[in-house]
């Protein structure tokens, strides 16, 4: 416990903010099912909170993967209709948490976060999130056709193709931006 406290004391203010975002992201994503009609019980929330704490402490470790998988599992189990608008909140929380973890892992906890890097990743996070509303709308539009199994496969394939195209476009613009 003392070691954790000392480790926290070594973190710079900007790193503390990032670790806070890393911690809050998964917790907010789980709690987002509440307004949609299914509050997470304590035996779900506590393990995810513990995983999120581990993720915040070690943003470069694989604890983050376990944390996100736990969130995905809860979203699968919790709601009949997963396309409630609160899923958008969950996605934003997870992406913010992921970006914060990326920024935190550029150096040790004692290193202040580089300002221009934060700005660059804020733009990237916003760009990545642009893909969420169309996907959600597409899902809402196709919700009534879920009986046709093939339409989901087609939908996911289209989504993946669109994502790949967006990725190539973003990567290309990055390369052009570099001198």
């Amino acid at each position: 416990m003392r070691g954790w406290a000392e480790g926290l004391g070594d973190l710079t203010a900007s790193q503390l903010v990032l670790r806070g975002l890393v911690l809050l992201g998964p917790v907010v994503a789980v709690l987002a099912t509440g307004p949609a009609g299914s509050w997470a019980p304590w035996w779900v929330l506590l393990p995810i909170l513990a995983l999120a704490v581990g993720f915040a402490a070690l943003p470069e470790s694989s604890v983050g993967i376990a944390t996100y998988l736990a969130v995905l599992a809860w979203w699968t189990l919790a709601l009949e209709d997963g396309l409630d608008p609160m899923v958008l909140v969950a996605v934003v929380a997870l992406v913010v948490s992921h970006v914060a973890a990326v920024l935190a892992s550029y150096g040790p906890g004692e290193m202040p976060v580089h300002g221009p890097l934060v700005r660059r990743w804020a733009v990237r996070g916003a760009l990545v999130l642009l893909v969420v509303p169309p996907t959600w709308l597409l899902g809402r539009g196709l919700r009534d056709d879920t009986a046709q199994h093939g339409i989901w496969v087609t939908g996911v394939a289209v989504a993946l193709a669109a994502t790949l195209a967006a990725a190539v476009a973003l990567a290309g613009s990055d390369r052009e931006a570099q001198p």
Partner: peptide, 11 residues
Amino acid sequence: SDPSLVVIGAP
């Protein structure tokens, strides 16, 4: 057949 996972996984 859970579309919410696609929404979460897209970014």
